[in-house]
Structure formats: C-alpha cells, structure tokens
Write a protein that binds this DNA or RNA. Structure first.
Lengths: 244, 244
DNA sequence: CGCTGTTTTGACAATTATCAACATAGGTGG
DNA sequence: CCACCTATGTTGATAATTGTCAAAACAGCG
C-alpha cells in the first residue's frame, strides 16, 4: 500500500530563485533582490519524484522546508485508530514541511500525485537567514495561518453543506488556485483520484462519482476521465447556497 | 443574536506573570526569569467578561495577543454563505488572537461561554520583544501549528467516526485538557450548550442529546444538566474503535 | 413565580453509505 | 502492437445513520 521513496532523486543548483518562474508565489515575493540572492544560496532542487512517492512520512525528522516546483501532492493524516484522512492537496508554489518548525517530527505524510519536483531549504539555514530578514518570519506565520484557515474552511464546508455542495466547493477551490497560478479557471485536470476527493470531503467515492455524473447530465461540466471542463462555471458555483 | 461588548472591562497590572498561577502553561514556561520580567511589562489584564460577550469579532483589527486567564470561550467562523461554524473551544492558558499575526483583520470571532478574564499583549510590543528573545518566535510557531493540528484532528474525527464516537472524542479532548490544567479527568463541567457541541462536531443538537442520554442509560456517565461525571472513563473511551 | 432559553424525546424523512457488478483506462509484457 | 491485468471509475439496489420538526419537560434568571 505504502510505496517507499524509490525514485532516483537528484539535486542541482542550476535554477536560481531570481530566475525561477515561481518567484511571484514563493518566498521571494516579499524579498528584495539582494535578499533573494541570500535565499537562493541555501536552496536545493530535487527532481524525479513520481506518483505515489512519499515526500516525507509522518514521524520523519524533516529538517527542511519544501516548495513544490512542479506536480502535485496530498497530505494525509493517520489517526491513532488507523483511519487515514486527507487534509490537503498541494500544487506548484505551495510550501510544505511547516510541521518541522515546531515539532521535531512531522505529524502528516505527503505523497505525490504525479511526476514532481521540489525545492528544499534546510531549516537551520533558514532560521539563520530569518534572523537577518525578519520578513521571513512573517511569511512563515502567514503560511502557517493560511493552513489553519484552510482547515477551518474545510470543516465549515463539511458541516454546513450537502455532498453536492462540497464537491462544488472543492472544484471552486481547485479552480481558484489554478487561476492564481495563471491557468484557466474552467479547465481542470484532476491529479487526484475520486477516492482521494471523497476522503478529503468526508464522502464515499461512489457518491463523488454520482455527483460529477449528475453535473454532467445537468450540463454544468464535461467529464473526460480526470479532466473536467467547467462549461457553465457560474451556474455550477450557484448550486452552493446559504443554509441557516 | 450577537451581543456587543457591553461588559465593563477594566485593566490592571497588579498580577505579574512571574506570580501568575498559569505561568506553567503560558509563554513564561519557556522563558528565563529575566525574560519573564520583560514580558510582564507589556502584559495587561482584563476582567469582567460575561457569557456571550465577544472578545473580538471577525474583521476586527486586533492588534494584540490574548491569553485566557479564567473562564472559557468559543471560536466561530462565518462562511460567505452565512453558515456559522464553531472551530474551537478555549480554556484558561489558551492563546488567542494569532489571526492578527499575519492578516491585519481577524477571520474568526471569539465569544465567551461564561464569566472570564484575560491577559493581552500588544502585538507591536511583542514583536519588539521577540527580536530580543527568539524563543518567543518558536513559541508562536508552535502555537500556530497546534491550531493546524487540532483542526486536522477535528476533520479526521468527523470524517471517520460515527456521531457517537465523535461525542466521545469530544469528551476525551475536554477531559485531557482539563487534566492538563490539573483538574480531574472524569468530572466535566460543560460551559458550552448542546447546540455548540453539535455545531462543532457537525451534528444536530438533538443527536448530541440522544447520545449523551444513551451513555447515561449504558452506565458510562452520569448527567446532571451541564455537569458530566464520567463514571466509567475507560469503557467510554473504548467505544471509539478503529475503522478501515 | 412566571418567562425564556435550553434540553430531552418521539415520529418521520432524507441523505448518503454500503455492497456489488460492470465498465473503462493505463500500464506491462509477450 | 496487441492482449492482458490491475487500478480506477460508474451505476444500481438497498440499508442505515442522522437530520428535521415539533412538543413537552426543565432550568435559570429577573
């Protein structure tokens, strides 16, 4: 069930932060040019991750921050009773590994959903740099709080919306994040399985299938396996309404 | 429905951190004696909060950190569709207001569940102090990450456990936190309503009532209004089992 | 002591899970 | 390049959990 890290990962320093296409969404977005140069000295790139590879396992001594450069991943949490719960999906520009800032060991595992590459920043070196660039502290706080906020939004969605509405909210989130990365809002490639979506939303995978099929029947989107064309974006979003 | 801050709150500096009964659970727990003295210079106490008073509203420019000194509170999140979702309960020693570290405005509201008092730390002054005491930065990170973790645990509980199990998990959480504050594990005073518990757990309040009644019939606990005696703690906890 | 808000309990309905069968896709080896 | 094999996805029939609505009991407060 759980694959080990079997990919041949390798590192280089060839692509520098100031030259990276993601710098607008990454740390450098709040740093001066000089500070960016300081940052890129401690950054390493890693290529060659594949589907089902683990970026890290719950319990690892992860002593670095990780930024997804390309590809996507999911975060999973395993309960003391053995239940597995997905608590997040991640795409290029997303920051992972904040676990290790406060606890020595990670509490969650991160698994890639497709071929991927990342940048890593040794946490020690990052801390040293943060002493010189206080901005980095605030950036970390902001990212951490964004995680709190996203989890709370998920709780809200699950407790106050029907299965159908949850799926729409999920698609809306994907679309918005994709849009922020400069891509189309209504053309979604799902890198995660229906089962992943279902687990994340607290539904059965059969339910997710049925709902997506229904949306297609209703002319709100076109399905072709894991590719969704949101042909009627606004109407789809309108199916989420207030509920006392 | 939403009461304004109508309580006559007043401040003093009489109780200093180094003399406070909560110092073991509060910031000072990682600080030296000297650092604690520096911290207490920027701390203010506020008394006189009452049930249903707001500590702050979503959207406020909250420029301070707050520590609950006595009493309890709940955090609520309101969706863009108007749904209200409780995302946390708070007791003495808990830190609130982390919202304001990254965003100018708070994203949630905090409402007291009973008479309460708090300490506040102006965020500006706290930041200045953090420059001198790096330990404070890590403490903040740890607290923020604890919030992430708690939200994720809640998601896990809701998606993988029945209504009955969710209630047990909730009681377990209360008991553990109360135990950590030096109180009994099996003697719970619920400061929140059944409706609050239900909202938090994603259930109907009638369901929570029914479940607690059933536990009483089964001899697992004794109910007297909002006071629960967990007469058979272990058996109660055992009702939460693994689920594939 | 009455009023208001909370809790309990019942009867019923509805959403969604479960189980199972079938269909499809993507990857692998002949 | 095709055929197989395993993963994943779809759809149907059925069952079960939990929500909804409402009425009655209860508690706390002025």
């Amino acid at each position: 069930m759980n694959t080990q890290d079997k990919a041949a990962h390798w590192s280089n320093h060839s692509v520098k932060c100031h030259d990276c296409g993601l710098k607008k969404q990454c740390f450098p977005n709040t740093l001066s040019q000089q500070e960016t140069l300081a940052l890129e000295n401690i950054v390493t790139s890693h290529y060659g991750y594949q589907r089902n590879d683990y970026l890290y396992h719950a319990g690892d001594f992860l002593n670095k921050l990780v930024i997804i450069k390309s590809g996507s991943a999911k975060t999973e949490l395993v309960s003391e009773y053995g239940a597995e719960q997905l608590v997040g999906f991640h795409f290029s520009g997303d920051l992972l590994g904040l676990d290790c800032t406060s606890h020595k060991r990670t509490l969650t595992s991160v698994v890639f959903l497709e071929n991927a590459s990342v940048c890593t920043i040794p946490y020690q070196a990052f801390n040293v740099l943060s002493e010189q660039i206080p901005q980095l502290h605030y950036e970390m706080m902001r990212r951490l709080h964004d995680e709190v906020s996203m989890s709370q939004q998920l709780i809200l969605a699950m407790n106050n919306h029907s299965a159908e509405q949850r799926v729409v909210i999920f698609l809306q989130d994907l679309a918005r994040r994709q849009y922020r990365r400069g891509l189309s809002k209504d053309n979604l490639h799902l890198s995660m399985s229906r089962a992943d979506i279902a687990n994340y939303l607290g539904l059965a995978s059969a339910t997710v299938s049925r709902i997506i099929s229904k949306f297609e029947r209703d002319g709100l989107l076109a399905v072709e396996n894991r590719h969704l064309q949101l042909t009627n974006y606004q109407a789809l979003m309108n199916t989420v309404q207030a509920c006392a």
